[in-house]
Design a binder for these strands. Structure first.
Lengths: 171, 171
DNA sequence: TCGAAGTTTCAATGTTTTCTGAAAGAATAA
DNA sequence: TTATTCTTTCAGAAAACATTGAAACTTCGA
């Protein structure tokens, strides 16, 4: 396979993959493009290579920056901004975990706490099942919270070994 | 908070949460409803409680069954089918990991292998960056594959301890 | 074999999400 | 200040995705 075809394929696949995970196609495609680009690209170049509009490129580049996956680069003597992505996938994964945890898990835990305090007679089957399930989810979430924190702090080696030892630092 | 309100809130939140992860709102809501229902529900009851159509209920229940999160239950003497969800969240999480791995990671690994064999002169910066990045993703994916397999097989305790020791059984 | 009860399918419709492009805004240099 | 280059915004258009509802299908008991 030639490079051009392989690039196109990777961008398409990474985009499709993203949509499965609640990430919009263009955002994932821009990310893919930057991952395989040796040099930082300008907004123009991103627009051209993916055939997308200026607005779309701008919006999704901003989103990628918010997620901490892309950096803006100012080249001395150039007026334009350039964009570049972190290429170490371990770091990328860690950053995504960190952001999703912040945006979702950390939001959910207080809600579960509230829901676990529902009023009612626990001899009522409906009440009991509800509180038990919520409590179960809550315990799971709190454990996930701790485990993910540890993972975010850890270096790559816990993962690559196949043998995993994680000591929860927060307890 | 009263039970009725808490239920409504949980269903809405679980639905919203699902959409962030590429799961459709209704599917997540049905799952939420079954998670907190002491008894199995019929399609009718699901339709009523969530105010959705018969077709929608049917389609999403089937999808939940495909994911292994819901079971069809045949009650002797009843003509209708009933539906019930696994309530142990640890098992639910494991099942989701298992399915997503099968549907996505296992698909992606052969593609990455192909892409990593792109033709071209590795002294060409574009070729080098491409192959390096793909190779990096590939290694990561293959490790994730092994780690997730171990996790799928493991019991709850590796997770709840905060101390994690996973011995990769597949190597 | 028929009718009743229940389930599945899918074309049409509705909803949500994403994208475009033009206009407004900023930054810079002359 | 003004022209130039680049970036941001956002209303409307387009595309993607989810839902409805009615018809077709299935199952079962009599």
């Amino acid at each position: 396979m030639q490079l051009a075809e392989a690039k196109a394929r990777f961008i398409a696949d990474w985009g499709r993959f993203g949509t499965n995970w609640g990430i919009n196609r263009t955002m994932a495609q821009i990310h893919a493009l930057l991952l395989i680009s040796p040099d930082a690209l300008s907004a123009e170049e991103v627009m051209e290579q993916l055939s997308i509009s200026r607005g779309n490129a701008n919006m999704n580049l901003r989103e990628l920056i918010d997620w901490g996956l892309v950096q803006k680069l100012l080249v001395p003597g150039e007026r334009k901004e350039f964009f570049t992505a972190e290429k170490d996938i371990w770091k990328v994964a860690r950053q995504i975990v960190k952001e999703r945890k912040k945006r979702e898990l950390d939001q959910m835990i207080p809600v579960l706490k509230e829901l676990s305090e529902v009023e009612g007679d626990r001899r009522d089957k409906a009440v009991k099942t509800f509180t038990d399930t919520i409590q179960n989810i809550r315990k799971f979430s709190e454990q996930a919270d701790r485990t993910l924190d540890t993972m975010i702090k850890a270096d790559e080696h816990w993962f690559v070994g196949g043998l995993v030892k994680l000591f929860g630092g927060s307890r």
